[in-house]
């Protein structure tokens, strides 16, 4: 339903052109708000974030600080496929891949840095990850650091599993479980 507001463009009458009465009327409006809020501060609609957090209707879709999931043996689920870095529109993910000599997963991120100062919290990295290795569900709001370095997350700061993990999702999970070959070929 579109509402139409009719604007009254008639010329101002003498009383209005003197402004004094009109200013006084405005004065009553503002001071009315002032006294109402002064004597009833609980009526204010501001939420005192982060002390007070209002449950959000779509909390499940909320994106917060990144984390990297780890396998049961403590190794990262990430295999440094660079898809998150490819998807990232802010170019905030820096990965350097390395090779496991013994682990059948073969590839792991020797360096995995997320620069929260550049991150735009779009969640594309999570969407892109084929290994279910990166998530944005730590419920920590990125930002608000006193030093730039605090905004730069390295591999170690990112590793974290939530209760109920590690999950077995991800393309390389089969390798992690040590898939056996048939014959030599």
């Amino acid at each position: 339903m579109i509402e139409i507001k009719k604007v009254d463009n008639r010329p101002l009458n003498l009383l209005e052109r003197l402004y004094i009465w009109e200013i006084f009327k405005g004065f009553l409006v503002t001071s009315g708000h002032f006294f109402r809020n002064l004597f009833n501060p609980k009526g204010l609609i501001t939420v005192q974030y982060p002390e007070v957090k209002r449950p959000l209707e779509y909390a499940a879709k909320r994106r917060t600080r990144h984390r990297l999931k780890v396998r049961a043996d403590g190794s990262p689920k990430c295999v440094a496929c660079f898809l998150c870095a490819t998807a990232c529109p802010a170019n905030c993910i820096h990965i350097e891949a390395a090779e496991y000599q013994a682990n059948p997963v073969e590839k792991y991120p020797a360096v995995f840095d997320v620069d929260l100062a550049r991150c735009v919290v779009c969640g594309m990295c999570v969407e892109a990850c084929p290994e279910d290795a990166i998530a944005m569900d730590t419920e920590e709001i990125p930002g608000g650091a006193l030093k730039r370095e605090e905004m730069y997350l390295t591999r170690e700061k990112l590793f974290r599993n939530l209760p109920g993990e590690p999950s077995l999702k991800g393309a390389a999970n089969r390798l992690a479980q040590g898939g056996k070959g048939i014959g030599r070929g």
Partner: peptide, 13 residues
Amino acid sequence: KLSSLMQDRVGPN
């Protein structure tokens, strides 16, 4: 504080 209260805000706290 005054401006915040008349604008239904909390103001510096």
